[in-house]
Structures are given as structure tokens and as C-alpha cells.
Computed example of a mutant assay.
Amino acid sequence: MSTVRTKTITPSPLNAEAFSAYGDVIENTGSPDKIINQGKCGRFHDRANLDFGTGQAGISLFEAEARSLPYVVDMVERHPEGSQAFIPIDGVPMLVIVADDRDGKPVNLKAFISQPGQSINLHRGTWHGVLAPLDKAGRFVVVDRIGDGTNLEEHWFSDPWTVEVTDT
């Protein structure tokens, strides 16, 4: 009889520096790059690196059920043919799970919690958890690759991970 071991990770607030190896944090920080619309609108220009091997960019709408902490991660996925951006419509925070790649397998899982006004764009080929709005359901605009061919790889963990806030 095998014993399932659960590994625990503690989420961090999402920030551009800590997330840079996995993707872009999309937010309007600093001054706008351009002022448009007769001076009434600040444009924060080109905030994500969209990257598609084949196909084209598409915009989809997702409705995701609420998740809560502690949260069990038993599977991650990646998209080898394109980046994937998640933009919350309702301002619901997201639990963002990412992992490094070692020889085609996810390792060193990390967890982030988005703050109001933050969206993410996952780099092409980045291991990541499923869309997980925290504490209430959420609607999201998703910009990702639309095209023929396989663009999804899944990895199921024999020993799941648990994301929880720990007392330190």
C-alpha cells in the first residue's frame, strides 16, 4: 500500500519581478505610455508578450467556479503553441500556480494571489494550474492561441501539492 504525501506551498502576493520567469503581470503601474481620446484616457501600452507558434490570437470568455484555501493541486498543464492571458472582469482575485520545467516535467511549484487590477499572461510552454478565482466565482477574458493541432499537455502528480496560508 503506497502512501500519498502532500507537499505544501504558501502563496505570495503576485508581483512582476517574482512572476517574470513564468509570464507577465498586466497592470497599469506608473504613468501612462500615451494620453489618447482628447486627453481623457491614459493608455498603458503593450503590457504582455503574446507569443504564438502557429494559429492566431483569440479572445474567449470564461466563467470559473470559486476555489478556496487550502487548495489541492493534483494537476498542472501547459500550452506549447501559445501564451495565455487571464483578465478578470469582476475583479475577483486569482490563485495562480506555476512551475519550472525540468526535462519536460513540472518542478518547484509556486503560488501567487493576484491583487485588484492585476491580470496575467503566461509565457508559452509555462506549467500552470487551472483557472482558480478565490472565494467567489469569476468571469475572465482569456487571450490565447486559436488554431489546429495539439496545444495542451497535462501533468498529474502522484503526490499532490496543497496551497495554504501557514503561520510563521
Score class of each variant (00 low, 15 high):
Gly104Gln: 00
Ala64Met: 13
Glu154Arg: 00
Leu152Tyr: 04
Glu27Phe: 00
Leu109Ile: 11
Gly23Leu: 00
Gly104Thr: 03
Ala64Ser: 15
Val98Thr: 13
Arg67Leu: 08
Asn108Trp: 05
Ile36Pro: 05
Met75Ala: 04
Lys40Met: 11
Asp33Asn: 11
Ser114Phe: 04
Ala64Leu: 04
Leu134Ser: 06
Gly91Tyr: 06
Val92Arg: 04
Pro80Ile: 01
Thr54Leu: 08
Asp46Arg: 06
Thr162Tyr: 00
Asn37Glu: 10
Thr150Asp: 15
Ser20Phe: 04
Glu65Ala: 13
Asp144Gly: 03
Asp148Thr: 10
Gly30Ala: 06
Glu17Cys: 08
Arg124Ala: 09
Asp24Tyr: 01
Lys7Thr: 15
Asp103Val: 02
Asn108Lys: 13
Gln38Asp: 15
Arg5Trp: 03
Trp156Ser: 08
Pro106Phe: 01
Asn28Phe: 01
Arg124Trp: 05
Glu65Arg: 11
Asp135Lys: 09
Thr126Ala: 08
Pro93Asp: 08
Val143Gly: 06
Val4Phe: 08
Gly23Cys: 01
Leu152Val: 08
Asn151Val: 07
Thr162Ala: 10
Ser2Pro: 12
Arg145Gln: 14
Glu17His: 11
Val25Arg: 04
Glu77Val: 00
Arg139Cys: 05
Pro160Asn: 03
Thr168Tyr: 06
His155Glu: 01
Ile113Thr: 12
Glu164Arg: 14
Glu77Thr: 02
Gln38Ala: 14
Ile36Leu: 15
Asp144Arg: 09
Gly58Glu: 12
Gly147Cys: 03
Met75His: 00
Ser68Gly: 14
Asp167Leu: 11
Ser60Glu: 13
Leu152Gly: 05
Leu95Ser: 13
Arg67Lys: 14
Gly104Asn: 05
Thr168Ser: 09
Gly104Pro: 13
Lys105Pro: 06
Val96Arg: 04
Leu69His: 10
Trp161Gly: 07
Asn49Phe: 08
Glu17Thr: 09
Glu17Ile: 10
Lys136Arg: 15
Pro11Asn: 12
Ser60Met: 13
Gly42Trp: 09
Ala137Cys: 07
Ala57Pro: 15
Val25Glu: 08
Gly39Tyr: 07
Pro11Ile: 13
Ile113Met: 14
